[in-house]
Nucleic acid binder design. Structure first.
Lengths: 338, 338
DNA sequence: CTGAAAGCGCTTACAG
DNA sequence: CTGAAAGCGCTTACAG
């Protein structure tokens, strides 16, 4: 492998000048720049990243933590984030965690070890952030979940307004005459403002406003954000509650499992039971029937997150918290009753 | 941030000894080891990875290239690879490429820049390997695709026997009386032995053995490995060929799109048209109807790949090429006719 | 078993 | 505009 020394020798300049050319410093003569650039290209020289980062005492990479490697929604945000980072010539380092892993603890480890210049969290448990995030000192962004209440100066967040999203989902069902609605979603902890808590609260408020009875114990089903668990929890639910006419699943993955479970329980979608999901992943457009959903704008989530992060890496600036609009996609999986 | 110097000072030993403790070298007294370990823990010291790698002139990371970030099959292999690497305390660096990107070119770039000690390719075009792989000098593994014929001493490969898999898929359809079969899959290039070419050849040979006519021009449909393209190409196909009674899709993603397309073309699955996919992704177990498929053993693919790679990183050894058994999953999407 | 020292490949004040 | 030199935080022969 060629090193900066070889390039210096070949070009007749010192390694200092070569370094300046590599890093686009202004104080280099046009002549030197051209000559050195030419040799770099000819020799296929690539600066050693480890050495660069060692000197700079930090890596130039941005680490992205993805909570749940099977989460299709987060994966599609990830794909776009990678695209935007690449467009800005930034290097991305992706780490996948299980849905139950502690992303902040892992981030801390990586932070100390690899010194990324910025961190993006795709999904995250606010509780973990409250406990440990303070030890992370580089700019970071939480996607899908609001960190507004935590007040970390270096943690921005972008997400859909989950309360309104949950409310909108329930309203679609209510508008179609449903009064016996079950909700399937994530873990509801004491920690308020979690994604699932917000969506549930929105749905409950919508039902309340329309005088629709809803009992948490029998009407809410806790579930992992996976197809399989969506299937199993829906099977259980339907075996107990024979009166259900509509299901709101807090993720499309859950909804896909629920769709099959409803059928395996002997019901038709939507004739017997209507179904609405959340996220707007591609699958929902190809199931039979297509699944109604609350579509999150993955592209905008990705774009805003990357832009904010890079901006804050370059300029000291306060973290911001933004809501990205969602869209109600009313599909074949919903049937008017009553 | 604490450095090795701080730990040396605090412990009363030299940085050399501290380094030996960190790297588990044998020549350290038990006393020194304990004392140093204790201080490292107490101070929360983390060695600087950049500095370590700089000295070692290579990174300790293993880079994984995933061709097609939306490819659910490759993602599930990736998930398991990450698990195995983690179990071996190896750091993984994941890079996603578009389906049409050149993974070897990107690998070359990363190889020169970050010096991974090993590379895993999830998916890959043999043509790219033939052209450029020779410049990569660390152990590597190609998953899903056989590199046996290329004879690179540092490139192992593990995959399903795609020829036999394709043949098995066609035979399921043939056994059920189908004689008018369409095949939908990837790009068929002059480069033989590609994944799609192999599956197609297997299917064609099966048909040939049973005297079933098959015309490449009208019977084979070229398609990206995505739901959307599976949908669109199947719509086109069915608008032209009214006689089709069975479809073999070379990936479950394609099959999922095809399932919806068949229905949107006015046919039922499986009463009018039978369908079989390839890969065995989770989703095929939850569609309506469930989709028959050739299930690849993602766990074993991941396990063998990681073990072989780590073995060859530690001991100079020739690359190996292995086939992993597949399993025919005969599901509701197939109907007996004739 | 331990320490002192060289050196990995870069960047960046500091001089000129 | 350019060069010589210090130093980033480690690892690893080399001596002892």
């Amino acid at each position: 492998m060629k090193t900066i020394k070889d390039i210096a020798k070949l070009s007749g300049y010192s390694i200092g000048t070569v370094s300046r050319v590599i890093n686009d410093h202004p104080d280099v003569s046009e002549e030197a720049r051209e000559k050195i650039l030419h040799i770099i290209k000819k020799e296929g020289y690539q600066p050693n990243t480890n050495a660069r980062h060692l000197k700079q005492a930090r890596s130039s990479a941005i680490t992205v933590f993805v909570k749940g490697s099977n989460n299709v929604f987060l994966n599609s945000v990830l794909e776009r984030i990678q695209g935007y980072l690449r467009a800005h010539h930034e290097e991305a380092h992706v780490v996948f965690l299980t849905e139950s892993g502690n992303e902040v603890e892992d981030a801390l480890q990586i932070f100390k070890e690899r010194r990324p210049k910025g961190i993006i969290f795709l999904g995250g448990d606010l509780h973990n952030f409250r406990e440990q995030f303070k030890r992370i000192t580089v700019p970071a962004v939480l996607v899908s979940g609001s960190a507004a209440d935590m007040g970390f100066a270096n943690l921005s967040s972008f997400c859909t307004d989950d309360y309104e999203g949950g409310k909108a989902a329930a309203e679609v069902l209510i508008r179609n005459g449903h009064r016996s609605i079950a909700v399937i979603g994530g873990f509801i902890s004491e920690e308020k403002k979690q994604v699932s808590s917000n969506r549930l609260q929105g749905a409950m408020d919508a039902m309340h406003e329309h005088d629709i009875p809803f009992d948490l114990d029998t009407g809410y089903c806790q579930c992992m954000f996976s197809i399989r668990d969506g299937y199993e929890k829906t099977m259980e639910l339907l075996s107990k509650r024979k009166d259900i006419t509509a299901v709101f699943a807090m993720s499309d993955m859950i909804a896909v499992g629920a769709l099959r479970a409803i059928r395996d329980s002997g019901y038709r979608v939507p004739e017997d039971i209507s179904l609405i999901g959340y996220d707007g992943i591609e699958y929902t457009r190809y199931t039979v029937p297509r699944i109604a959903t609350i579509r999150q704008d993955t592209d905008l989530l990705a774009k805003k997150s990357v832009e904010d992060l890079l901006f804050r890496i370059s300029y000291e600036k306060e973290a911001v918290h933004g809501y990205i609009d969602f869209k109600v996609i009313d599909k074949e999986s919903i049937c008017r009753i009553g």
